[in-house]
Amino acid sequence: MSPVEQIPAAGSEPMAAAPARPSRATLVNAALGLGLLAFGLGAWAMGEVFMVTLATKVAILAIAGAGLNLVLGYGGLVSFGHAAYFGLGGYTAGILAHHALNYTPLFEWPFLFEGTTSMPVIWLTAMVIGALAAAAIGALSLRTTGVYFIMITLAFGQMIFYFAISWPAYGGEDGLPIYVRNGFPGLDTLDPLHFFGLVWAVLMAVLGGIAMLARSRFGLALQAARQNRQRLMAVGIRPGGVLLTAFVISGAITALAGALYADLNRFVSPSMLSWHLSGELLVFLILGGTGRLFAPLAGAGLYIALEHLLGGVSDHWQFFFGLLLLAVVLFARGGVIGFLAGGKRHG
C-alpha cells in the first residue's frame, strides 16, 4: 500500500493525488465512526441506558481530542494545557444555564442578557470564548518551542485552574450544577438517545471539518510548518500566523466539547480544567495514533472501554492500565489506527 492513500494529514506527501477507491485507512475510519453509532443504538435497543451515556462520553472526549489533534497531530505543537479550553467551554455552558435557570441577568449593559439554555447559543458562545482564550495564550506561548511550549501551555492551564478553584461566584471547587440539561430545537436532550445522536452528529461534523481543513491550502501550510518551518517561510508564509490560527480553531473545538461535557454530566467543576485532563487528551491521541483524523475517537473509545472493563476486574486496575499503556508506547507505535490501517506515522 502506498502512503499516498492515507489521511492527508498523516501522509508524508499530502499533495499527492486523491485515491481512486477507498483506502484501508478510510475503511477503518468509517468503521470507527459507524461503530460508535451502532454501539450507542445497540445499547439503547438492549435497554443498556448507561452504555449510551458511555458512548456519548466517548464522542465528546473525541471532539476534544480532535481539537487537540489539529495542533498536535497536524501542527506538531504539544499542548499540555488543553483542559483550559475544555473547562472554559464547560463553564460557559454552566454559567449561561445557571443565570437562565435562576432568572438572574448575567449582565445588563450594553443589553440585558439573562443567560440561555439553548444549546446552539451556548455552543457558539463557548467556541468564541475558547477561541479568544486560545488566541491570547497561543500568542504568548508560540514564542517558545519544544519542551518550553509544553510547559508554558501547562502553566496557563494551571493559572485558570487555580482561579476557578478559588473564585467563589460560581461554586469554586464545589462546581456548578446544571439541574436540567440544556435544550436543542426539535430534540428531547434529556433522552439519552437523543443527546447521543446529537453529540455523534457534532463529532462527525467536527471531523469532517478538520478533514476539509487539512486538505485546504491552510492545512497544507500547517503540516508544512510542522515538518519544516524554513521551507514555509521560503514560499512566503509566516509559520507563526498559521500555527496561531490552528491554535485558535483548536481552542474553539475543545471548548465546544467542554460545553457538551457539561451538559452530559449536568455539572461543571474545576476538575475539567485540571492538568490530568490535559494529560488524558494527549493519551487519547497517542493511543489512537497521532495525526490520524480518527485517532481521537479510537483513543477515547479504547481508553473509556479499558477503564470500564479493567475497573471491573480489580481495585488496582490503574496498575494494569499503566502496564498496558507502557506496552502500547514501547511496542505498538502508531497507535490503534496505525495498527489497523498500517502506514507510516510522522515523527
Binding site: T53, N265, S271, M272
Partner: peptide
C-alpha cells in the same frame, strides 16, 4: 466529580 456523576448515572439507569 465526573466519575461520581457517571457512576450515579450507571446506578440509576
Amino acid at each position: 466529580p465526573e466519575v461520581a456523576v457517571q457512576l450515579s448515572d450507571e446506578m440509576i439507569q
